[in-house]
Every structure is written in C-alpha cells, then in structure tokens.
Simulated scan of single mutants.
Amino acid sequence: MKRNLSKYGVTAALVALACSHASGAPVAGSIEAQTLPPFLSAGAAAQQSIQCQPVDDDVLSHQTGKYAGSDMISGFVLNLLSEWQLPNGATAVAQGALSVAQNTSNQLSAQVQTYANVVGGNNPHNSGANPNASATGGQNVAVNGISQVTQVAGNGNVGVNGATIDYSNNAQQLANIAGASNQSSAFATNANGNITAGITFANNSINVSVQTPAGIATQSIVPGSAQQAGAIAQLLQIAGNNQQVSNQLALSLQTQQMNAAMIRQTGVLQALRNIH
C-alpha cells in the first residue's frame, strides 16, 4: 500500500505520524454486550449479541478510523532530497537517508547517510533572482502531521514538494548515496557564500535546507511531545525567474506479517474504538 502526500529519537515521530497503537484480547465469533443503548435493543432484553463478520477491503477502504498499529512496524527507511538549479548552471543539493531496523530481540539499530554539494554557475550575476520580488511567511506555518507550502514570485519556475509513505513486507535497505558519509550532518557552500546546502540529524529532529539568491527550500521532521503531535514540513520559497527546485521525501515502513486471525481482531478492535 502506498500513499502520496518523508540512537535517533526521530524514529518515534515518523512511526507516530504514519500509524497508531491498537491492542486487546482475542475476539471470538460474537461479542456479548452487557448493556446496549436503546437504539440497538430489540425489546427489553438485558443482553443481546452483536454478530461480527469479515468485511472486504474495498468496503473498509471507504471507512474512517482504519490504521496500522505501531506494533506492526518493524523498521523503516527514510530518504530526503532537496535540490535547486539556477539558470546560470549553479546547483545546490542536500540529501540524506536514515534506516532503522529491529532484530529478533526487538532491539533497534540505526544507520545514517548525509550528503551536501554546491556547484557554482558559469555566470554568478545571472542567478535569476529578483531583488524586487519576495516570498515570505511560509516558514511561520505550524501544523500537526504533514504540511507542504509553496510560495512563488516570478516567471518560468518549477517547484515541487513531494512526499511518499510506503508500506511493505519486504526488508528495507539503506540506499547508497554517492559521495555520502556516515556522519549525522553535512554542509556545503559556494565561494562567496550566497548558495548553501545542508542536512542535519540532531536533537531528535531532521532538518534539510538549501538557500540561494532566489529563495530557500527546506524540509523538517519534528517528533511529537506532550503538547503537540509530530510534524513533517516541506517549504519552497522562490523569488526569481527560471528556477528549478524540488523537495522529495520517501518513507518506507516495513510491516510484520500478520495472520488472518490477527487481521480480523485488529479490524474489530479499531471499529469498536470508533463507536461513541
């Protein structure tokens, strides 16, 4: 199933954004209700039975409250890429990957890769930036969950925010990023410092940033707290012409195999929790 929308404490934030926890005792063929509300009661009987039967996925796909329990997730691979191409040939790239796997003892291990690179253009004075244009305010947007903000002031620009969350039963492998290191951060800049690219895995968060004379591209993942849920944010601000910019996030969650009985039990429990 794939949905389009991305020693590291951020693990909890990513899993919490994609799934919630469900647990309980096994469910039999019928559930005995000790007391039923009047609209379910046929007569004055004190006890009745609610019969349960399997429901096909094409029916469940239209229902709210269907989710994957966090105990189903055994690992994930996260890939992040922010790239900016200016009309004078200058490019800035910030890229990283994080892999978290669970062994047979339920212990987690993490691997990380980071990469940043800036290549100067053939004409530093033809960056396409417009000093009379501005794109601001998007960095102040705060939401719980996933947010994508694009602000453009100019002509001939291409800007893309892309995020994909993929569930798979296959073991996930950390992609090999050419030129990457196993450090928790990477940073690059051009000679005069007006083009920068960087990525950081730190403080239980992930931050990716590319800055040019024509704007900024950022991605951030922040874990949840007692006050608010976790968040994944992608932001593009372009103030210029003929810029090509993209933020890409891909999160692949590895799910454990579940037998038919466990799937039915989880489905019934989730349905019951949505009855108020």
Rank of each mutant, 00 (worst) to 15 (best):
P54K: 04
C52G: 11
A178M: 08
N241L: 04
Q183V: 01
A110E: 15
N190S: 08
F187Y: 15
A214D: 02
Y167P: 01
V245D: 07
S205K: 14
A135M: 08
S147C: 11
T11H: 13
N241M: 06
S220A: 12
N274R: 04
N88E: 01
S209G: 14
V160S: 07
N190V: 02
V100M: 15
F201I: 09
Q228E: 01
T218R: 13
Q219F: 08
R273I: 00
N203Q: 12
V15Y: 06
N207G: 12
L98C: 03
A101Q: 15
Q228T: 07
N259V: 05
V158L: 06
A18W: 03
T164G: 01
Q254T: 12
V222W: 08
V55Y: 07
V158R: 06
N157S: 03
I238P: 04
G43V: 06
S147Y: 10
A25I: 02
L5P: 00
I31C: 02
I206N: 11
N126S: 15
A94W: 10
G145S: 08
R3K: 09
G156P: 03
V222C: 12
V208E: 11
Q237I: 00
A171N: 14
A28S: 14
D166G: 10
A250I: 01
Q47V: 14
Q85C: 00
D57P: 06
I146P: 00
S105V: 12
S205H: 08
I199P: 12
I177D: 07
D56Y: 08
L40Q: 05
D71S: 10
S74W: 04
G224Y: 03
A133K: 05
L40G: 10
G137H: 07
S74R: 14
A214L: 00
Q173K: 12
S220C: 02
Q173Y: 05
Q228A: 04
F201P: 06
T150P: 01
V93Q: 05
I165Y: 05
G162E: 11
A46I: 02
S105H: 14
A214G: 11
N122M: 06
A12Y: 06
Q48E: 12
N4F: 09
P131S: 09
Q139K: 13
T11E: 13
L14R: 08
